[in-house]
Design a protein around this nucleic acid. Structure first.
Lengths: 157, 157
DNA sequence: TCCAGATGGTCAACGAGGTTGAACATCTTC
DNA sequence: GAAGATGTTCAACCTCGTTGACCATCTGGA
């Protein structure tokens, strides 16, 4: 549902949906142009989550707002593509922490590079301060709705 | 993909995704509480599109950024639920324009009421001017990317 | 110490909601 | 008037999520 606002201005919900799609599509378009052809939108969540330290499947699931099963499938896909690996022998024997492979780190670098360019292009339209204000206000209102922390996202689409 | 920004601030793409989900989930939660239990997120696109005049299936598809087949299925679902009807005997005999039923108008009213409340609540956190600025900047940057008009959204999720 | 319950992970079956491909009716144009 | 374009729908399929069941491992209290 993306209703219009009272005054006939486009609803924020609709604008968010369009903005998300636009950024994601552009990011993946440029990734594809660079040869990264097997990257799914949801990969980004995992890449970032395991960027600095390994993460468990359950942790990923709660981060993304999906079930453990869905997160497990996603990890499996990324393992097959060679972006992450499952560890064995963690302190807690039930866990199978996930970490980046060298290829995964390469992809992460490409993603960060491209995404920075995209936000840069936005800054050229609404100005860098406008961009920062938008980010700050969004963080404020979204964490307010979830007592202080950013809620999970479902990487649907 | 929703990478982090250079400085470690949350990526706009992620914030948009969270914001969209939040608004949509809250809207549907309140709709459900009022007894509207068979409303799917994508219904909103159709409700608004046919608000003032009928729309064709093809028009709805291009508005939402999906195939005509998907739009046709969506319309069929809404017909079954009693929110819209297909017209017959349009000027162009191929078309079967879709318009709101009384029940559909009722739902539209409820949606607009609730959605206005939600944006109102946002305004209480970031201020009405902040909300308007966010909307204005989003419209600016999004229509800039699509030569002047707001691009379609895929109502996935 | 040991067992009941909680937690991490995966397999299997299923469902929602999109896509592609094909068919058919109607319009448009030369 | 016939050839192609356009509007709509049917059918088959695919992706990616869910629920339900199951197993392995950890943890806490009797």
């Amino acid at each position: 549902m993306t209703p219009a606002s009272p005054a006939g201005e486009p609803a924020l919900a609709r604008l968010f949906a369009i903005g998300y799609r636009l950024l994601i599509d552009q990011l993946h378009g440029r990734l594809r142009a660079l040869g990264w052809t097997d990257v799914r939108p949801a990969f980004g969540f995992v890449l970032l989550a395991v960027r600095d330290q390994p993460a468990t499947v359950t942790g990923l699931a709660s981060l993304m707002g999906t079930t453990k099963q869905a997160a497990s499938k996603l990890v499996e896909t990324m393992v097959v593509s060679g972006y992450v690996e499952r560890e064995t022998g963690a302190r807690d024997g039930r866990q199978r922490p996930v970490h980046l492979t060298p290829r995964g780190k390469e992809l992460l670098r490409a993603v960060e590079q491209i995404y920075a360019e995209l936000e840069q292009e936005w800054a050229q339209v609404i100005g860098a301060p406008g961009l920062q204000r938008m980010r700050r206000d969004l963080v404020r209102v979204l964490s307010d709705a979830d007592d202080g922390a950013l809620p999970p996202v479902r990487p649907v689409w």
